[in-house]
Write a protein that binds this DNA or RNA. Structure first.
Length: 489
RNA sequence: GGUCGGUUGGCCGAGUGGCUAGGCAGCGGUCUGCAAAACCGUUUACGGCGGUUCGAAUCCGCCAUCGACCUCCA
């Protein structure tokens, strides 16, 4: 590979050069949503972060198998492996089948991530479709002696595991410290220790989602699906595992323990975690009740929203921050992104119309290098965007005749914008996309030509009337020295 | 209490031992019948206190403060 990509590995807490196990093939597993609620801004950040990784790896000519799971079973409502399954609860409350809940929210998730320009993963496995794999993994862990059965349920024996391996190495935790601070078990629990976690849970009689197993009719523990499905589709060892930072502990820590316990080795080479979205400095989350769903965001129908924000505005807003930083939500920030994105696309639209002349310059080639350098440095999309805005300034200067661009440089500039704006950042011009745009374009151009004639006659009453009418129809007109530009709002 | 991470100009948000991202907003100007856009210029920030250094916002220490995780959360 021509470029040296460095990514921050949560395990080593350092930026490391990314070297795939089997280049040019890359295996990436990302924790997807638990489908019991509408997707919100936090889901968008995770989806977009790993979409960026997916896209950039492909731009570097890697062949990526991107697996993103759907959690549709086993994710419990409360702590200590004692609560109700989230999806089962939703189904009970709404008096529908659990799988109806699952399907509904999968559809919603796909609908909204699609609007956000998130590419579908290569494989999107569901936990409920991989019960056999999960049971077989439990058997391996039992056989290796790192789990025990208790009243029809199976638990992972964290303390035993910790005697031979380092439990907590991903999140920087020390088991003894954890144990000394945690509350005592009440003696009723099936677990030997509070940090043991469920691999298999025996279903209560009223529990709807249940499968037969050697231990009981029941269902798998939440952490298990990722270990089982990543191994199935990416092998015992693979390159990247991603997810939100809030999954680092205990979810990913447990995954590591399960994998090491069953196979004796670590599966994941690079752990990548995206940071949270905050609102008024506080994490946006379901449990805090301060989250904004994507539907609300796109419609503006939420008390915290001054207006609706388009999917691309949201995507751009998220990409303007580095994925490992918290990103604070505010109307002001979203509106700044909205304006900035318009400026970016105005330049993209101007690009094919630029007149070429003058000498070749190093500027464009250097710009291209800077863009790659930004992405190679732990996928620094905000720096990439800053460089692209440099390019925007240059494009505008050429457009206004203050600067010249050689034909070869123009081609290179087009390539840069196509690669980075379209392919890597995945930004699409929403205003341009319409099925009948050909007809509309023709009509608007015709009307604006007539307005030009009116202007030439100094009939400003007519020309202003045309402009006002078009503005009312959502078409913004911008006069130029030698003609006009227009765009749909 | 433990672990980790922030604290940057009006707002968002990068980065860095010396060359002072970027976006948005503001101000002044160019252009324009007007408007918008664009362009040019402009406002020069890094929580506090010490230390290291020729030089620190960037490294170290202490303090303050905010947050994340330690229960489910992207």
């Amino acid at each position: 590979m021509e470029h040296q990509l460095f990514v921050y590995n949560s395990l080593s807490r350092k930026k490391e050069q990314f070297i795939p196990l089997h280049s040019p093939a890359v295996g990436m597993y990302v924790c997807g949503p638990t489908v019991y609620g509408d997707p919100h801004l936090g889901h968008a950040r995770s989806a977009i972060t790993f979409d960026l990784v997916f896209r950039y790896l492909q731009a570097l000519d890697y062949k990526v198998r991107y697996v993103r799971n759907i959690t549709d079973v086993g994710h419990l409502e409360n702590d200590a492996d004692e609560g109700e399954d989230k999806i089962a609860k939703k189904a009970r409350v709404e008096e529908i089948e659990p799988m109806e809940v699952v399907q509904y929210y999968i559809n919603r998730y796909h609908q909204f991530t699609n609007l956000l320009g998130v590419l579908p993963p290569s494989i999107e496995p569901q936990a409920s479709g991989h019960i056999i794999e999960q049971i077989s993994l439990i058997e391996k862990i039992l056989k290796a002696g790192f789990a025990y059965e208790s009243n029809g349920s199976v638990y992972f024996d964290v303390q035993k595991y910790n005697q031979q391996h380092a439990y907590g190495k991903l999140s920087g935790r020390v088991l003894d410290d954890l144990l000394s601070f945690t509350r005592e078990l009440d003696g009723q629990s099936e677990k030997h220790s509070s940090f043991d976690f469920a691999l298999w849970k025996k279903a209560t009689p009223e529990h709807l989602m249940r499968w037969p197993s050697p231990w009981s009719d029941g269902y798998p523990g939440w952490h298990l699906e990722c270990s089982a499905m990543s191994a199935k589709y990416l092998g015992e060892e693979f390159d990247i595992h991603g997810g939100g930072m809030d999954l680092l502990f205990p979810h990913h820590e447990c995954e590591i323990a399960q994998t090491v316990a069953s196979s004796g080795k670590d599966a994941v080479r690079y752990w990548i975690h995206n940071n949270m979205i905050t609102i008024n400095g506080q994490k946006m989350g379901k449990s805090l009740g301060n989250y904004i769903t994507l539907e609300e965001l796109f419609s503006g129908n939420h008390k915290a929203l001054e207006k609706a924000y388009s999917p691309m505005t949201v995507r751009f807003f998220i990409l303007q921050a580095h994925y490992r930083s918290t990103l604070d939500f505010s109307n002001e920030a979203l509106q700044a992104s909205e304006k900035g994105l318009q400026r970016l696309f105005a330049a993209v639209k101007a690009l094919p119309t630029l007149k070429t002349s003058g000498e070749k310059s190093d500027y464009v080639a250097e710009l291209r290098q800077k863009c790659y350098a930004a992405m190679n440095d732990d996928l620094n999309s905000p720096i990439l965007i800053a460089h692209l805005f440099d390019g925007v300034r240059y494009i505008n200067a050429v457009k206004d005749g203050h600067e010249t661009i050689h034909a070869e440089d123009l081609e290179l500039m087009k390539e840069i914008f196509s690669t980075f704006v379209d392919k890597v950042l995945g930004l699409k011009d929403e205003t341009a996309a319409a099925g009948d745009s050909g007809l509309i374009e023709g009509l608007v151009n015709m009307i604006l030509e007539m307005r030009m004639d009116a202007k030439a006659r100094k009939d400003f009453a007519a020309s202003d009337k045309i402009r006002n009418e078009l503005t009312n129809l959502g078409i913004e007109v911008k006069d130029r020295k030698d003609g006009f530009d227009w765009s749909r709002k």
